[in-house]
Amino acid sequence: MGKKSGAVAHVLLDQYGRTYASEAGIKLRDSPGSLYQILVLAHLLSARIKADIAVAAARALFDAGMRDARRMAEASWQQRVDALGEGGYRRYDERTATQLGDAAELLRREYRGDLRRLRQAGDPKKLLRDFPGIGPSGVDIFLREVQGIWPEFAPYIDSKALQGAERVGLPKTPKALARLVKEDDLPRLAAGLVRVALDKRAAEEVRAAA
């Protein structure tokens, strides 16, 4: 089982181990801009919409200049709607545009636009829920993506990632999964597990290749 699990994890990283942050063009850094962009991405990904559309919408927002809390807050509601629409995020665009503006204002007001201050202020799992549009799944997505720079949360393998682990025959606990890869690869492993949880055919490909 150990050898087989290692082979599956290797194939998973190789074929599907791309984080959603990297797909959205976000450079993972413990900096206000990077962390804010991951929060926006987590917000978009947590809606009932295809992941590739959420990623495209995040890129469109960032390309339109809304790369930090100040610029998001200062953008007009219509500018946010237009960027979301450009990314194909049309089903929830109006509500999401409002939530993004309100969340940016909250971040500026409470943490001076810097999520590192939130990390210092208390339990991010609880405090992140204060942001409009960020529910339990949004918190999971955010912490899954930032565990490489906020190591106190690693290994962060949430319930969706554990579904992926079961689908490809890997261990069903975060600690056991973490032993299969290098610490630096944990965000990629978690993302790969989510991808196979969402795509049965991808899971079959991984199992077959391993």
Rank of each mutant, 00 (worst) to 15 (best):
H43Q: 02
L128D: 02
E205R: 13
L106Y: 07
R95P: 01
G87W: 13
G65R: 05
E86M: 13
Y89M: 02
A47M: 07
G164L: 07
A64L: 10
A7Y: 01
P32Q: 06
P187A: 00
D63W: 11
A165G: 13
V139G: 00
Y111F: 08
A54M: 06
Q37K: 13
V139C: 01
I49P: 02
T96G: 05
G65E: 05
Y92N: 00
G25N: 15
A7M: 14
T98H: 11
A69G: 09
G169V: 12
R59C: 14
D158L: 01
E23R: 15
W77S: 06
A121R: 04
G101Y: 03
P151M: 03
K126A: 07
A69H: 09
R112M: 13
A191Q: 08
L162T: 10
E205H: 10
D123I: 00
K27E: 15
D30H: 09
P124W: 01
G192E: 08
A178T: 01
A209F: 14
A60F: 12
A209D: 13
Y156C: 04
A104Q: 02
V11K: 12
D68C: 12
I134F: 00
L180W: 02
S31Y: 10
A208V: 12
S76M: 11
R108K: 14
R59T: 14
G17N: 04
A24S: 06
S46N: 00
G85L: 12
E74W: 06
L180N: 04
P32A: 03
R119V: 13
Y156V: 06
L162C: 08
L118P: 02
K182Y: 11
R201V: 15
L170I: 09
R112Q: 15
G33E: 14
A58D: 14
V196F: 03
K200F: 14
L13W: 03
M72T: 15
Q147A: 11
A191Y: 08
L186H: 08
V194Q: 04
L12E: 12
E105C: 05
G122P: 04
Q99R: 01
K160H: 12
R207C: 11
A176L: 10
A197F: 05
V168Y: 03
I38A: 03
A178M: 01
Y36D: 03
L44Y: 02
G25H: 15
P171N: 07
I49M: 05
Y36R: 02
D63C: 10
Y16E: 13
A73K: 10
V146K: 02
Q120C: 06
R144C: 04
L115S: 06
R29V: 13
G33P: 08
E152G: 12
D158Q: 03
L127W: 00
A165V: 13
V194S: 04
